[in-house]
Amino acid sequence: MNTETNLKYLKDRSRKNETLENVKYFLKRNPLAVLGLIVLLVIILGCLFAPLLTDYPPTKISIKEKLVAPNRDHVFGTDQLGRDIFSRVLYGGRNTIFIGFVVILISFTIGVSIGIFSGFMGGIVDNIIMRIVDAILSFPTLVLAITFAAVLGPNLQNAMIAVTITMIPQFARISRGLALSVKNLLFVEAARSVGASTWRILRAHILPNAISPLFVQASLNFGSTILQTASLGFLGLGAQPPMPEWGVDVSGASQYIRESPWVALAPGLAILITVLAFNLVGDALADWNNPRARKGN
């Protein structure tokens, strides 16, 4: 091993330690974020290991046992078709959270690419892209998602496309601002002067310097993505029964609340707790990234 690689190795190691220290410090200072992370972990593990936690298949109908109040066999009771609600919440979470994850991943990738490209290019390209982004942002997000889902046709895939369409401009707007603020810094100028290509500057210089506020935004948007997906499901525009999904299950239960209120309780509570946990983590990260707010606390 020569001296150069040795040095590089040491540098990498110290940088890794620094990141770890930062994470530790962040978690120590933000008990609420830790709480949020733990709750999320429990929910995600619960959904992943659903087959181990319940013997009831989520779509197994048994009319004889319909609308049974919570008891030892059915912890959350059974619904109007005699399906075990605990099982439906666990399997439903797989769908709801997975949908949220895919939507965020796709809209993050597309939105950030558009935004950074637009901010870096400037001029007419930037102007045109941003006018379109502004126009999409002129709709309340829920209305836009509902309208697109309604027009494309009621199924899960279209609901995901609809929510993705509302999320892309939000990421594009923020990443454009970040690209603008980084674009004229000296190291970008330096990279350009040594002849780096546009693509290389975007990828190696601008993106890494804009990425942490973008992750904060992604964690905040996760909650609203889940809320929107569930709302579409509730309106009959997302997942279709008998597929277990939290929004769909609340909707199916709404006629039976007079005699059997527990039917609506569990799936809705699952949405609330999951979104709440994401917001706890996202808020803490946002405060952390904004030194002015950090000092205020």
């Binding site: 909650g223 809320l227 569930a230 709302s231 509730f234 929004g247 609340v250 909707s251 239960a253 709404s254 609340i257 209120p261 609506a264 309780l265 799936p267 809705g268 509570l269 949405i271 609330l272 979104v275 709440l276 917001n279 706890l280």
Partner: peptide, 18 residues
């Protein structure tokens, strides 16, 4: 305020009805 921004409106409506 955390619950206010995190609760799904359709579910909150049903809970208030109950």
């Amino acid at each position: 305020s955390l619950i206010g921004v995190s609760a799904p409106a359709f579910w909150l409506a049903i809970i208030l009805q109950i």
